[in-house]
């Protein structure tokens, strides 16, 4: 009798755990006004960043951000603008990772989310763009 109860409890617990896991695995919440606002802002900026990725002036960092790699490809008068773009994009990306963690009520996931994004930005980058490898060195894709 006792064993049967134990078995039930165990099965119940496993089921409970499994459903919770499945729920967690299902999807990450990203449909929040904050994420939407940040995404919009990044999308609007992308047209300006695109030629900078292509020319190698700006590269993707290993921590999910962007950084100046070689400004020599950019006309002098626009270099200050490049700095401003990088600063704004970095700020948005940091906010994006934080907001996704927040939207899922898991602030402690921020660094994991950042790491996941870092990898996916690089995976989806176009050939010719630069990214940082695990050692922090610039690599041309």
């Amino acid at each position: 009798m006792l064993h049967l109860t134990w078995l039930r409890v165990a099965v119940f617990t496993i089921l409970l755990g499994a459903t919770a896991l499945a729920a967690a695995q299902a999807n990450l919440e990203i449909n929040t006004p904050a994420v939407a606002a940040i995404q919009k802002s990044m999308q609007d900026r992308h047209a300006q960043l695109l030629p900078l990725y292509s020319s190698g002036a700006v590269g993707l960092t290993r921590d999910g951000g962007v950084a100046l790699r070689d400004a020599n490809a950019v006309p002098l008068a626009q270099r200050a603008q490049v700095n401003a773009l990088i600063a704004a994009e970095s700020q948005d990306r940091a906010a994006l990772y934080r907001e996704i963690a927040r939207a899922n009520a898991r602030p402690e996931w921020e660094s994991d989310i950042r790491a996941t994004f870092a990898q996916r930005w690089i995976d989806k980058a176009q050939p010719g763009w630069y990214y940082q490898n695990a050692g922090g060195a610039w690599v041309r894709k």
């Binding site: 967690a24 695995q25 299902a26 999807n27 990450l28 990203i30 994420v35 995404q39 994006l96 996704i100 996931w109 994991d112 989310i113 996941t116 994004f117 996916r120 930005w121 989806k124």
Partner: peptide, 11 residues
């Protein structure tokens, strides 16, 4: 996996 899917959608 879910994080990767979310990242892909946003990227």
């Amino acid at each position: 996996a879910a994080a990767e899917r979310a990242a892909d959608r946003i990227i």
